[in-house]
Nucleic acid binder design. Sequence first.
DNA 1: AGAATTATTTTGACAAGTAAAATATTTAAT
DNA 2: ATTAAATATTTTACTTGTCAAAATAATTCT
Lengths: 409, 409
Amino acid sequence: MKKTMAEVQVVRPSSDQRESGRLQVLDTIRSAGRIARIDIAQATGFSPATVTAITSELLAAGLIEESSSDDQPSETRRGRPRVTLKLRGKAHRIAGLKVAQRTITMLIVDFEGKTIVDHEMEFPTARVSPTELVDRILKIVDATCRKGGFDRTGLSGLGIGLPGQINSVSNFVHWSSSLLERNVELGALLAQRLPFPVFVDNDANLVAKAEHLFGKGRESRNFLVVTLEFGVGLGIMIDGEVYRGQRGCGAEFGHTKVQLHGALCQCGQRGCLEAYVGDYALLREANGVTVGEPYTDVAQLVAAARGGDQVAMSIFERAGAMFGMGLANLINIFDPDLIILAGRSHNKRHIFLDAAVTRAMQSVVQVDAPPPEIRTHGWGDLMWAKGAAAYAIEKVSGLTVKDVTRNAS
Amino acid sequence: MKKTMAEVQVVRPSSDQRESGRLQVLDTIRSAGRIARIDIAQATGFSPATVTAITSELLAAGLIEESSSDDQPSETRRGRPRVTLKLRGKAHRIAGLKVAQRTITMLIVDFEGKTIVDHEMEFPTARVSPTELVDRILKIVDATCRKGGFDRTGLSGLGIGLPGQINSVSNFVHWSSSLLERNVELGALLAQRLPFPVFVDNDANLVAKAEHLFGKGRESRNFLVVTLEFGVGLGIMIDGEVYRGQRGCGAEFGHTKVQLHGALCQCGQRGCLEAYVGDYALLREANGVTVGEPYTDVAQLVAAARGGDQVAMSIFERAGAMFGMGLANLINIFDPDLIILAGRSHNKRHIFLDAAVTRAMQSVVQVDAPPPEIRTHGWGDLMWAKGAAAYAIEKVSGLTVKDVTRNAS
DNA sequence: AGAATTATTTTGACAAGTAAAATATTTAAT
DNA sequence: ATTAAATATTTTACTTGTCAAAATAATTCT
């Protein structure tokens, strides 16, 4: 009679061992889209026998299905034809949500990652109290579900991306530019009110996840995502996992120093990269010397630069140089094979992006191996939300795979 | 009859699965020094039964032994007393070797990491041909063995650390400041001439390994090692593994840019950290303005600064500021729990190290969690060699554990 | 001496994975 | 059309690593 409640809910140390095979196969199928069992064996290193066993479990659980697609008859070989497998979209509906400055964007995808509905809501204030944020989230969740013709209970999970320092293990928000308070148990607050699991993470990390699952980082296990929006963000993917550092927060690339005693940053320090390339930094500089009407949007500044305005051109020139320097530093430190530049409106910015990339490549230490590839990827709020959904899909997959019973015959 | 040679030497995909448990236990014992089975179970998550099975194999293989140390009777508890296990030093003799500018330092340790002999040789030229380097290495290997009273065949492995870009998987040297040629198959060249396996890696990575196995990084799985000698090096330990980037080369922290259009670096680019804090950079700057006898050693410059020389003080001031900036950037990106500053003569340099650390801590983005610890660790050439030995121990452990037969009863 | 306590080993069972054989389904050749 | 060859998948029988529970061992406390 000595057992306490705490002792009872002991975690079995072997439980993750079992499901690892299933999860690995599921991930392989996801990243391939359609793939035959024999190729899964090839990709995972499992024997065909094991692949048969695992896939039959996943089939029985309804997570995957045989795809009798006549799209690609592939190279018509001899022998028994391969049966390709794919994720079963209907298995789950999963939501992703991006909290931006004044808008919240949400979208719901199926288990394959195909968008079912999306929705966007505008709010008057950027920074709100925790309870207010929870209310807003509940509101958009219900609104989006209604738009899709179902209700909350039709969802299997929700991923939330917001800027700031977030511990994604505990769904805890150390700090966010969307919240008035520090140290918010956002995950716990939402879990009380929603009938499905909620996963919170820094938005740059979610971009990395999304690129890994659906995007340009699908073939790569080591890549970086640099986001350029209001601020500068960094997602680090190492060996297929998002690297989060010791304290569980995202990498603070934006506050990397690129100039001793440099420009003043939002964070109160000097010489931060963000203080040269962030939206507010560009506007601040322009309005500091312009006598007429002040700029209110970077787009105006871009237009001015395109029109030959010396001040605007000079500002973008320096921003490009600084950003290139930051990129070069990342490359020199990480030696990734791919860097993805993701941002809302890269078309607007490519004036300085191109220069930055060029400069970065020049500033990389020469090796005999080829330098990393740098790709840009335009990201609207919808894509950020999709990143959140991608994260939730991964999490839900992990949870679901645990419940798969082992008696598929 | 269709099988080719390539098909025959197929790698069994399961072979590493078997040994992983053994290796994990071995690593646990190593990092603990002395540890009882029950604590191994605790630390690894294996059940006591499994620990018994694995340790009995390792005992039978002679890799570990029961330590009847009366040193620490520990807290005298009731119940059956724990039997502590430790590595068996006699199991292997392993060598580590550091190639520096004009010296090669080697030391031989036992399997516990205890030094048996060490030896150092001076050479007239810093950069040599591959064959010359191989000859030098063979010479010091034999000399050190002789000093220890045995010969080459008494060794089980050799780790070699040298500066430069090195692929440690293939023991291939892309470039090194010690070699006249690029792209040298150093590992293969040595393997032909030596009766034991050879492992080559970048020296900063080896410091990371050494700190992980024996030093200040023993409790941490995520830490950085910054080396400050002739140049600046960085070793990245992520989740207990040295991160090597996509192309397998070390991180090039020294060529991280800290100033746009900055000082000219050895590498031909401008604004590299190394161009502000490396030995040659300090001397260059001092000699650029001093009219009298030029400085030839950083020690002289340090003395001058201590003596109140304005030029010298100013140089160290800037070096400190730049180095602090570099450190802050690392912290902002990696969020490690520990940074180890390792260098030959930190006593000489602490003038600017202290300032650098202070500045770095000021420049870190504030989180609620405590900032990372920064520790300094003086490293002579002997310690670098020990790092190489640590790396070789790890590799040899991996190889040996594969050969352990499963019939210890 | 006996009870209580803690560490280790033994035992028996089981899950996960494999190799090899069997089966299925196709194309190519006769 | 039939057979052979090729390739994919499944079944079968076995190995291995791991664990829970029981047994055993070696202490201290009473």
